[in-house]
Measured scan of single mutants.
Amino acid sequence: KKYKIKVYVKDKKTKKWKKIKEIEVDTKEEALEAIKKLPPNYEVKIVP
């Protein structure tokens, strides 16, 4: 079972969220580790 991490950042001009990358991992633990490495201003969604 794979997890997709969708990473969004808020556009300063439009104030809208835009997706900047998608990370695919195998476990939820890996997903949480990957999220920890991202800057705090990123919004993250984990999709099972």
Rank of each mutant, 00 (worst) to 15 (best):
P40M: 05
I5P: 00
E29P: 04
Y8H: 01
I46F: 09
T27N: 07
K10S: 03
K21S: 14
P39S: 09
L38P: 01
W17E: 01
A31P: 00
K15S: 13
K4H: 08
N41I: 09
E43F: 13
L38T: 01
K6R: 07
T14A: 07
Y42H: 11
V7I: 09
Y42G: 03
K4E: 03
V9W: 07
E30F: 03
K10G: 03
K28M: 15
I35L: 07
K2F: 11
T14N: 08
K2V: 10
V9L: 11
V44L: 05
Y3N: 01
V44D: 00
E30C: 03
D11Q: 05
I35W: 03
K12E: 15
T27D: 05
K4Y: 12
P40S: 10
Y8L: 02
K15R: 11
E30K: 06
I46C: 11
L32K: 10
T27F: 04
L32H: 12
K4C: 13
T27I: 02
K1F: 15
I5Y: 08
K16M: 07
E29L: 10
I20N: 01
W17D: 00
Y3K: 00
A34E: 14
L38H: 02
K10Q: 13
K19I: 09
T14L: 06
E24Y: 13
K12D: 11
K37G: 10
P40N: 10
E43T: 15
L38R: 01
I35E: 02
K13E: 13
L38Y: 13
E22N: 02
K28H: 15
I46H: 02
I23W: 15
K15P: 02
K13T: 13
E24H: 15
I23M: 13
V9T: 10
E30Y: 02
K2I: 08
V25M: 10
P39F: 06
E33M: 07
Y8G: 01
K16I: 06
D11N: 15
Y8C: 04
E43Q: 15
K1N: 14
E30P: 00
K6D: 09
A34R: 09
V7S: 01
A34L: 12
P48F: 14
K19W: 10
D26H: 12
K28C: 09
